[in-house]
């Protein structure tokens, strides 16, 4: 169980290296640029090291929410949409109060962001419990709806009136009360990272000590036993999708009001999808997700560095990240099953 993520990372390095070689790049150099340079290169580390927390924060926050649902067998694939809606609602709540300098602005935005993500996740929850629809499809397709709404509001409703006609909202970096600034300079630590750490601890307590977490695990492991125990399936669906939406929405708000700075049509960077990989790479365990989030953030930063220094195409980096999930699933299959060659199965 603990070993297969390690094997997966190792295999990704080997096969990824082969891919880089085929692309005509030095494989060992590329691996070093991705995994080592962001943290320890004299030239870049001072810039890229804080980026680690900036990227890992939202990944961990979203993945924690997803992992709770995955434990119960509720496959919320639409965290990206919940993340976008959180950003829109949180930013919108803040911008409605512009230019107030009240210290309550930022907490209000965080709350609105979380609620926005939560509300977006309630759509598949209601449809699933009322009409038995598949939450995978509904949550995924709502991501594309959210994407369209984002494009619409960033060039319409929430566009910066002083932006000279350019799409995009006001920049929160120029509005102290609403800016999600670094808490300690040059560490990348902002409120979203703090929230992610709280979420890790909270999820750990929930899943290992609280009866709700117990019921969630029970639902995933043995649905009939869960009903026998008295777990109401609909409640689990609402809780799991709700918490995932809440955390993804909050992550969206922390991102838009901090590192991204403003709402634009392309502000979302696929965190909601990458978080699925993070959740599985971390074995759906809070501490595992913490580590997996940091690792995945590293490949993001290292990947950008590799694009810059070695001219690796961006798609190759995404492929590299995807391989990690692929090899993890493969490693899991091979720990549970064995391949047999040359023999036909018995009917």
């Amino acid at each position: 169980m603990v070993l297969s993520p390690v094997i997966a990372v190792f295999l990704t390095m080997i096969v990824g290296g082969m891919m880089f070689a085929i692309l005509g790049k030095p494989p060992l150099e590329a691996i070093k640029v991705i995994f080592w340079d962001p943290l320890f290169n004299d030239q870049f580390a001072s810039y890229s090291r804080p980026q680690l927390l900036v990227k890992a924060g939202p990944l961990i926050l979203i993945a924690i929410g997803l992992s709770i649902g995955f434990k119960a067998g509720i496959w919320n694939i639409g965290a990206e949409g919940q993340y976008i809606m959180g950003a829109i609602c949180g930013a919108g709540a803040g911008l409605a109060l512009y230019p107030s300098e009240s210290f309550l602005i930022f907490p209000a935005m965080a709350l609105a962001g979380g609620l926005g993500g939560w509300a977006w996740a309630m759509v598949p929850a209601v449809l699933k419990t009322r009409f038995g629809t598949n939450e995978i499809l509904v949550s995924l397709m709502l991501t594309y709806v959210a994407q369209s709404i984002l494009i619409s509001v960033s060039s319409g409703l929430l566009r910066n009136p002083e932006g000279m006609g350019f799409p995009g909202s006001r920049n929160f970096k120029q509005w102290d009360a609403a800016f999600n600034a670094e808490l300690i300079a040059n560490t990348g630590l902002h409120w979203g990272v703090v929230a992610a750490l709280i979420a890790v601890i909270g999820a750990y307590m929930l899943m290992s000590r609280h009866i709700m977490g117990f019921n969630i695990r029970l639902t995933g492991e043995a649905p009939r036993a869960a009903r026998f125990a008295g777990v109401k399936p609909a409640r689990v669906v609402f809780f799991c999708l709700g918490i995932a939406g809440l955390l993804a929405g909050a992550a969206g708000l922390f991102e838009v009001s901090g590192p991204a700075g403003q709402l634009t049509g392309s502000f979302n960077a696929g965190y909601g999808f990458t978080a699925i990989i993070v959740a599985f790479l971390g074995r759906l365990h809070p501490v595992g997700i913490l580590l997996a989030g940091l690792l995945m953030a590293l490949t993001y930063i290292g990947g950008e560095l590799a694009q810059l220094m070695l001219n690796l195409p961006g798609a190759a980096i995404q492929l590299f990240q995807g391989m990690m999930l692929f090899f993890l699933l493969a490693a899991d299959v091979f720990t549970n099953f064995r391949l047999r060659f040359g023999k036909k199965g018995v009917a």
Partner: peptide, 23 residues
């Protein structure tokens, strides 16, 4: 009647299965 999957969750420990109805 069905012990595995109904009266008890197969992959959970006996302690967790005690919580299942005894909580």
């Amino acid at each position: 009647e069905e012990r595995l999957g109904h009266a008890a969750a197969p992959d959970m420990s006996l302690i967790e299965n005690a919580v299942l109805t005894g909580a």
